[in-house]
C-alpha cells in the first residue's frame, strides 16, 4: 500500500450554474502506484483537467474520498493544502505560467522559497533542475527571451526542483510545435525512467500519450475500465 500514491474512491464533481447541476466527474475510482507515468486522455469537456485539479488540491470533489501522498485531501485546511502542495506537487501548465518579471533561474527557484533551504542549497537545486532540462545556459534569461519549448522546459524544471512526490502536467505539449512537443515528452519520460518520478499527464495528443506507461481514457466524466 505504501507504493500507492493516489487513491480515489467514488470521486464525483459537479459545478452549479444558477441552480443547474453540471456533472463533470462521476464515480471515479483510481489507484496510482509510485513511479507510474499515467496519461489521461479524453475529448475536451471530458473532465480530465478537473480530475488533475482535484489531484493537485486546488479544487474540491463534491463527493467521494481522495488520498494523495498519504493525506486525505478533504481533511486539510486551505493553509495546510498550500503547504502540502509545496511539498508534494509539481505542476506543469499548458501555457507554462512563468512569471514574466522573473528570470528562468528565479522562476525555478520560486518553489524553493517555501522550503527552509539556504541560499546556497537553493542555488544547487536550481542549477541541477535547469541542468536536467538542458537550460543551464539560459538561467539569466527572462521568459520572453525564450522559445515556447524552452519556456516549458523551465516550467518543468520549476516542477521538479523541490523533488515533489507527484508531477502533474496539464496538456504540456498543447501550445508547442511538433519538434518542441517531442522534446518535452522525451524529457518527461526521462524523468519517469531515470529519476523514478510519478507523473500524471492530461493530454489529447495521442503522440504524447504514447510515451506514457499507462493510458486511461475519460469520457463524459467517467473513467474507462
Amino acid at each position: 500500500m505504501a507504493d500507492i500514491i493516489v487513491t480515489a474512491r467514488n470521486l464525483s464533481k459537479s459545478y452549479y450554474r444558477e441552480s443547474l447541476e453540471i456533472p463533470v466527474l462521476h464515480n471515479i475510482n483510481l489507484d496510482i502506484p509510485n513511479g507510474q507515468f499515467l496519461a489521461l486522455m479524453g475529448p475536451s469537456g471530458s473532465g480530465k483537467t478537473t480530475l488533475l485539479n482535484l489531484l493537485a488540491g486546488i479544487d474540491q470533489p463534491t463527493t467521494g474520498t481522495l488520498t494523495v501522498a498519504g493525506e486525505e485531501m478533504s481533511r486539510l485546511s486551505d493553509r495546510e493544502l498550500a503547504r502540502w502542495r509545496a511539498r508534494h506537487i509539481g505542476f506543469v501548465f499548458q501555457f507554462y505560467n512563468l512569471m514574466p518579471v522573473l528570470t528562468a533561474y528565479e522562476n525555478v527557484e520560486l518553489p524553493l522559497l517555501l522550503t527552509h533551504l539556504s541560499k546556497k542549497e537553493r542555488r544547487q537545486h536550481v542549477e541541477t533542475a535547469l541542468g536536467i532540462v538542458g537550460l543551464s545556459d539560459r538561467m539569466r534569461h527572462y521568459p520572453r527571451q525564450l522559445s515556447g519549448g524552452q519556456e516549458q522546459r523551465v516550467a518543468i524544471a520549476r516542477a521538479i526542483v523541490s523533488d515533489p512526490t507527484l508531477i502533474l502536467a496539464d496538456e504540456p505539449t498543447g501550445d508547442l510545435d511538433k519538434q518542441s512537443a517531442e522534446e518535452i515528452m522525451t524529457l518527461l519520460s526521462r524523468l519517469n525512467a531515470e529519476f523514478k518520478k510519478t507523473i500524471i499527464m492530461v493530454t489529447h495528443d495521442p503522440r504524447a500519450a504514447e510515451k506514457a506507461g499507462l493510458v486511461r481514457h475519460l469520457d463524459k466524466g467517467e473513467l474507462d475500465g
Binding site: 493553509r79 498550500a82 505542476f91 512569471m99 520560486l110 517555501l114
Partner: peptide, 15 residues
C-alpha cells in the same frame, strides 16, 4: 490573475 493562480498552485498561501 493567472500569475496569482500559478503561485497558489506552487504552494504559496493566500496570506
Amino acid at each position: 490573475v493567472r500569475e496569482i493562480g500559478t503561485l497558489r498552485s506552487l504552494g504559496f498561501s493566500r496570506l
